[in-house]
Amino acid sequence: MFDALKKLKYGARVFLSRKGGEPEVIDVRGRPVSIMSGGDGPPFVYLHSTLGESMRWLPFHAAWSKHFTVYAPLHPGFGQSGGFDEIDSIEDMAFHYLELFDALGLGEVILGGVSLGGWIAAEFAIRWPERVKKLWLSGAPGLWVEEQPLPDLFRDMANVPRLRSLLFHDPDGYMAKMVLADNIEDERRVMGFQAMTVLARLVWERPYDPKLARRLHRIQCPTLLLWGGNDRLVPPAYGEAYRQHLPQSEMKIIPHCGHLAMFEKEAEFVEAVTAFCQ
């Protein structure tokens, strides 16, 4: 009962926060890119995870928009964003964002993302460090930690309970059950399949970038590594690995939190990112 109320409350907040971001489709060198933006202040670009959470303007987007001009684009292959045929590697994603920022007239941005989005942000920042004012990564893969190999997300993608325990600290919590619902209609299932297709293209053969570690030194801006203390998909050891290659970075752990901090511990997540980026 309590969970049901929480769920209703979240739904109401999602509804109210919609007023912030207006989705539009812009053209980037012939590719349609779906993007939402809202708020005022320095440009702040959020790169989403494989969940595709930037399909909607969610409470955490809205919270940032009180301090920044928030841009929330969808990666190629998600929603209305095209150009997936031109994507073969994580580097192609980074180049895609270079062209998007150029199209938007953004010089220097605050850049960050969760999971896949965080990895893309890191790949962008090693190539064009002068375009990144501040960088934050949450639950980002990209490196490889020999002692803690990343689990196989693809093996469990059709098994909702297993997926929940991989992605959430509390797999029985209302957020886990809302983000990864038990019974979803086939169309949404196919959208999930499409999202996983984008991820598979990038990581199937090798779920990390073997050249990333030795290029991270190129990032000179302040960097926040924000990890769920109980992230089982990309464990905190991966944040620690980033930290070792980024002397100017700080690592912050959110306790009792899994891979998707923006859902499982939204308040702490938003607060940590906002405080760091201001």
């Binding site: 693809f154 059709a158 086939d186 299932r189 196919v190 499409q194 996983m196 297709t197 199937w204």
Partner: peptide
């Protein structure tokens, strides 16, 4: 066991149905 991208989204839907 169906890895993502192995079929088009359209075919994946047909398989589900």
């Amino acid at each position: 066991l169906a890895p993502p991208g192995y079929t088009s989204a359209k075919s994946a839907l047909a398989i589900l149905r």
